[in-house]
Computed example of a mutant assay.
Amino acid sequence: MAKVIAHIKEVPFQIEIKTPTGNIITADEPVEKGGKDTGFSPKELLTASLSACTLATLRMYINKKGWNIPEIKVETELIEMDGKTLFARKLEFLSTVDEDQKKRLILVANACPVHKILSGTIEIETELI
Rank of each mutant, 00 (worst) to 15 (best):
P30R: 10
K102V: 02
I72Y: 00
I24N: 01
T38L: 14
P70M: 08
R104T: 10
M81W: 02
A52N: 13
H115D: 07
T54C: 15
T96E: 15
V11F: 00
G120N: 11
A109E: 01
G22C: 07
A48H: 02
G120E: 07
K3T: 10
E29P: 00
P42S: 08
I122S: 05
S51A: 15
I129S: 12
G34T: 12
P20Q: 07
P12F: 11
S119Y: 02
V108P: 06
M60N: 04
T96P: 04
A48L: 10
I69A: 08
L55M: 07
L58W: 03
N68A: 13
V97I: 11
E16R: 13
E125N: 06
F13R: 05
S41Q: 15
N63V: 10
A111F: 01
L78A: 08
I17S: 12
Q101P: 10
R59P: 01
F40C: 06
K102G: 04
Y61P: 07
S49A: 15
T126Q: 06
F40G: 04
D100W: 00
K64C: 01
T126A: 09
K65H: 06
L94M: 13
R89P: 04
L91C: 01
T47D: 09
D28F: 01
S41T: 15
E80T: 08
T85M: 05
T26Y: 11
L118F: 13
L91S: 05
R104P: 04
K43Y: 14
K73G: 12
T47R: 13
A52C: 15
E71V: 08
G66M: 11
K103A: 14
I25S: 02
T21V: 02
K36I: 15
V74C: 14
P20A: 09
A48R: 02
H7E: 12
P12A: 14
I25N: 02
L86D: 11
I72A: 06
K64T: 10
W67F: 04
L45T: 11
A111G: 04
M60I: 04
D82E: 14
L118T: 03
Q14L: 15
